[in-house]
Design a protein around this nucleic acid. Structure first.
Length: 304
DNA sequence: CGCTCTACCTGTGTGC
DNA sequence: TGCACACAGGTAGAGC
C-alpha cells in the first residue's frame, strides 16, 4: 500500500535508473490503467514515443517524469508522464532485453520500452493506479503549507494537491492551521490531500497514535500545539519508514509493495487489533471509519 | 463553497 | 468443494 515513503522510494529509484533514458515505444496492455489519459491509449503511446525522461518528481503520492521535446532537448519540459500507484501499483525497471522478455506478468498493465533495450513496467494488481501524459502548468502555490505566491510547475491533475510533510518547502505551522480550519474529525483532515498530502490510512493511524490523539477528535478541539504534535507524529513515522525503505532498496528494481519492510516490524497500531499498545499494553482497538478502519489505543488516545 | 459518501477494481481469506 | 461475502483503500466526482 504505497503511501508517501513508498512513493518516494520509487521516485528515488526512477531518478537513479530511468532518468535520462528515452522511450522507444509504449505498450498499453490494459486500457483501464490509462483511463485518466482522456485522449486514449494510442494518444498516450504517441506522446511518449521518442521522448526522454528528464527528471523524477513527487508531490504527496503523485509522481511524474517530465518529458524532453524531441526536437529541442534542453528546453523546459511542458509535459510529463504522470503516475499514481493507487493501492498496488509498482514501477519496475528492466535493465536488459532479456530481463524484459523474462518479466511477463499477469498484472503488467503498461510497458515502456526504452531505447537501450530495457523497459519500465507498470504492474498493478488492483488497478486503482493509473498513468497519463499531461501538461505541466505553473500553479499558484497557495495550498496549505505552500510557499505563498511562488509558482510551482506541476501537472494539472496535481494542482490541487497540498505539499507533503517531507517537502522542505512545507510550513507546518500553516498546515496545522489548515487542519484546524476544517470542520470535521482530525483523521479525515489529515487524509485530505488538499490539506496535507501523502498521508494514507496506515500512517494516519500511526501518526495519531504517536501524538496520542484519537482519530475522531473534532478539529475544532485541537489547539495549535496539539495539531502540530499530530503533524510531527506523521512526519516522524513517514521519515522512519522512508529510511528503512531506502536501506532495503535493491538496485535496478523499483519496488513498492512492502519495499520498506516497515509493515512487519514497526507498526504500533495499524493492523494490530487486540495486540498490546507498545506504550501502555492496552489492547489496540479497531473501529470502522469511512468504510475503512481505524486502529488506536483507547487509553493513550482517549475518545473525544 | 465545504463536507460526506460512493464507485471504481481484484485477489485473498473466512464462514457456511 | 463451492459459493457468498468481507476486506484492503486513494481518488474523483456526485450529492447535500
Amino acid at each position: 500500500m504505497p503511501e508517501l515513503p513508498e512513493v518516494e522510494t520509487v521516485r528515488d529509484g526512477l531518478e537513479r535508473h530511468v532518468v535520462g533514458r528515452t522511450v522507444r515505444a509504449a505498450e498499453v496492455r490494459r486500457p483501464y490503467s490509462v483511463r485518466r489519459h482522456l485522449a486514449g491509449p494510442a494518444d498516450l503511446a504517441g506522446r511518449l514515443a521518442g521522448r526522454t525522461l528528464t527528471a523524477a518528481v513527487r508531490r504527496g503520492k503523485f509522481l511524474w517524469l517530465p518529458l524532453d521535446h524531441p526536437g529541442a532537448p534542453g528546453t523546459t519540459p511542458d509535459d510529463a508522464l504522470l503516475a499514481h500507484l493507487g493501492m498496488s501499483g509498482q514501477l519496475l525497471v528492466r535493465a536488459t532485453a532479456a530481463d524484459v522478455a523474462a518479466a511477463e506478468h499477469p498484472h503488467l498493465r503498461v510497458r515502456l520500452l526504452l531505447d537501450d533495450g530495457g523497459a519500465l513496467d507498470f504492474v498493478d494488481q488492483r488497478t486503482f493506479g493509473h498513468l497519463s501524459v499531461v501538461d505541466l502548468e505553473p500553479t499558484a502555490d497557495d495550498r496549505p503549507g505552500g510557499a505563498g505566491s511562488d509558482l510551482a510547475l506541476v501537472p494539472g491533475p496535481v494542482a490541487h494537491i497540498g505539499r507533503d510533510l517531507l517537502d522542505p518547502a512545507v510550513d507546518r505551522d500553516v498546515v496545522a492551521r489548515a487542519v484546524r480550519r476544517r470542520r470535521t474529525q482530525v483523521k479525515r483532515a489529515v487524509l485530505d490531500q488538499t490539506v496535507v498530502s501523502g498521508v494514507g490510512n496506515i500512517y494516519a493511524d500511526e501518526g495519531l497514535w504517536r501524538a496520542r490523539v484519537h482519530p475522531l477528535t473534532p478539529t475544532a478541539d485541537l489547539d495549535q500545539a496539539t495539531a502540530l504534535r499530530v503533524l510531527d507524529g506523521l512526519a516522524e513515522v513517514m521519515g522512519e519508514a522512508l529510511a528503512q525503505g531506502g536501506t532495503s532498496f535493491d538496485a535496478l528494481y523499483v519496488n513498492v509493495n512492502g519495499a520498506s519492510g516497515y509493515f512487519d516490524r514497526s507498526l504500533a497500531v495499524y493492523g494490530q487489533t487486540d495486540r498490546p499498545c507498545p506504550r501502555c499494553g492496552t489492547p489496540v482497538v479497531r473501529e470502522s471509519f469511512m468504510n475503512r478502519s481505524s486502529h488506536f489505543c483507547p487509553v493513550c488516545q482517549p475518545a473525544p
